[in-house]
């Protein structure tokens, strides 16, 4: 049996005997092995690996940030940083029925737009579909977007949102985290935006280490102190 938060590489033995094979692991002859590089962990008899790299695989209900890359009759095609292009139907963009013969789709969204959307369907056989018919969703008018590794999003959010709330509180920024590793930052001040970006990049880089929330806290406090000295 492995220790908690032990660094593992693919093919390493994690547990032997009566255990369940969780995320990023596989079972062979009652033994559980890692299938990705990451930190192994277990909850009761569930063994899993928190991966340190990998692509985003859509999950129904996920909030994602995507780029509109193409348009067809009645649909927008949206790149959501996944191996699959997602589809946004015009009927999922407006609250009433949409008639593409009478209305211009570009009135709502056009190629190059960035949208905050929710995944409403996805399986092995069909590409994901999106909706923006919910409050808060839709075209993103302004802000700054940074990309992180999608597998590190849970680390950025932290336990019950502890990490992301810390950054939001300390920098006074509006931060929206897309599950696909795209993060939208809106700040009143340029310095706080730079600080939030710095903190998020540090989390991305150090996602595999412990005591990260404390270090982020220190970083923000230190940077804020320095910038207040400059302001004087």
């Amino acid at each position: 049996m492995i220790e908690r938060r032990q660094f593992v590489t693919p093919g390493e033995l994690l547990a032997e005997g009566d255990y369940n094979s969780g995320e990023n692991t596989y079972r062979e002859n009652k033994k559980i092995y890692a299938s990705k590089t990451g930190l192994a962990n277990f909850v009761r008899n569930n063994v899993y690996v928190v991966a340190l790299s990998g692509c985003y695989i859509p999950v129904v209900g996920d909030l994602v940030i995507g780029n509109v890359v193409d348009m067809r009759l009645g649909v927008w095609l949206v790149d959501i940083n996944a191996p699959y292009i997602s589809v946004l139907f015009a009927s999922e963009a407006v609250d009433r029925s949409f008639n593409s013969r009478r209305e211009e789709m570009t009135k709502y969204l056009t190629i190059g737009d960035v949208v905050l959307a929710k995944i409403i369907s996805f399986d092995r056989t069909k590409d994901p579909t999106l909706t923006i018919r919910e409050p808060g969703l839709g075209k993103i008018p302004l802000g700054h977007i940074i990309d992180i590794t999608p597998t590190k999003v849970p680390r950025l959010i932290g336990r019950r949102g502890s990490m992301i709330n810390l950054i939001k509180r300390e920098t006074n920024c509006q931060i929206t985290v897309g599950r696909n590793g795209r993060i939208l930052i809106n700040c009143a001040k340029l310095e706080s935006e730079a600080l939030a970006t710095k903190a998020i990049n540090l989390i991305e880089q150090d996602a595999h280490t412990t005591g990260l929330t404390d270090r982020i806290n220190k970083l923000i406090k230190k940077e804020k102190k320095e910038s207040s000295i400059h302001a004087k």
Binding site: P10, G11, S35, K36, A51, C55, T149
Partner: peptide, 11 residues
């Protein structure tokens, strides 16, 4: 492949 985060059985 391991660096790309592609699930593999072993190196």
């Amino acid at each position: 492949l391991a660096d790309a985060g592609i699930p593999i059985k072993d190196l």
